[in-house]
Write a protein that binds this DNA or RNA. Structure first.
Length: 309
DNA sequence: ACGCAATGCAGATTATACTA
DNA sequence: TAGTATAATCTGCATTGCGT
């Protein structure tokens, strides 16, 4: 259920904060696959595991739900899962800001939003956001409007549980679009997402998510599996038209490929990685990066002398 | 009537506490 | 210390509702 906001919006915006080091990392994160780090990281929780993986790649520890912004106490980092709509524009879900006991206005004062593709978990881009006078004025309308019928962009929602409530602040997906954080025009990167198919496949394979494989041939009825010596039967016309298609793994079936759903994707929809080779990106998306080959973005981006604070 | 997008619920998973 | 039960967590997905 929805509740009234607990924190009154500030009368004046907080100052703009920036950091040249974080800007360099954000720029380098294009084409960063989050899957391997999410899988291998100890303590990376199920729901927030890709957000934790991003923080690890940026050189941070995975501490969640702290009142202070993630980066040097100045800038909050938020991972947004995105997917393509039918017309090629990007869409996203609403995001959690913080627990209802924490001041969301302070958290949102300066934010780095990082957008990752929902199907492949590859970073597509980012946006720095400052809650300045204009955007503060818009978001402040959420204070005082009816939580249900006023359609606020910042809400508190709590879930009934036996032990009481666990209320938290959330930002609507509408707000992210309205503030221009997602591109308004169709994009060439990322994939559509079919949640019905995703759910059915996960249900069929004991809750495990489908494995992603890149199409390596233009035509025919199968494409080779990069994890084993088998092949994937797939509608390649659909792959190159829609971006991806469900696939069936034929025998022989390697250990990693057994008991999993499969999807084949058009590799041309992956972004050009800024800080990795194409082969590193492909291996990560296809889930064939051994622990010892796991690399960290922060180790590849030199820290500038002047952070420009 | 149909397909897609907005909305809100709760499943799936991990963290923590507790027991043997 | 290992194993089991309970609590806490947030995003993924089902449903609703709208527009064509």
């Amino acid at each position: 259920m929805r509740l009234p906001l607990r924190h009154r919006p500030p009368a004046t915006p907080e100052p703009l904060r920036r950091c040249a080091h974080l800007e360099a990392l954000a720029e380098a994160s294009v084409g960063l696959p989050l899957g391997p780090a999410a899988r291998h990281l100890v303590g990376a929780g199920g729901r927030g595991r890709h957000g934790n993986a991003l923080q690890w790649h940026l050189g941070l520890d995975c501490h969640d739900s702290v009142a202070q912004p993630d980066w040097e106490g100045r800038i909050e980092i938020k991972l947004i899962s995105v997917w393509q709509r039918a017309d090629g524009r990007l869409a996203c879900d609403r995001i959690k800001v913080c627990e209802a006991s924490v001041d969301p206005w302070a958290k949102l004062a300066n934010v780095l939003f990082v957008f990752a593709d929902r199907l492949t978990r590859v970073v597509l881009g980012h946006a720095f956001f400052h809650l300045g006078a204009a955007s503060l004025g818009r978001l402040a309308r959420s204070w005082g409007v009816d939580p249900h019928f006023g359609r606020p962009d910042l809400i508190i929602e709590s879930r009934d549980s036996a032990q009481g409530m666990s209320p938290a602040y959330y930002l609507s997906a509408r707000w992210l679009v309205g503030e221009g954080l997602l591109p308004e025009h169709p994009v060439h990167w990322g994939y559509r997402f079919d949640n019905r198919w995703w759910r059915d496949v996960r249900a069929e394979f004991a809750g495990r998510s489908p494995l992603v494989t890149l199409a390596r041939v233009d035509s025919g009825e199968t494409t080779p599996c990069s994890r084993c010596s088998g092949r994937l039967r797939v509608d390649l016309d659909r792959v190159f038209e829609q971006g991806w298609a469900p696939a069936h793994h034929t025998m022989p079936l390697g250990d990693r490929c057994a008991l999993r759903g499969h999807v084949v994707v058009d590799p041309r929809r992956l972004p050009e990685p800024h800080c990795a080779s194409d082969e590193e990106l492909f291996a990560a998306v296809e889930g064939r990066v051994p622990d010892e080959d796991l690399w960290r973005l922060a180790d590849r981006v030199p820290e500038p002398e002047d952070h420009g604070h």
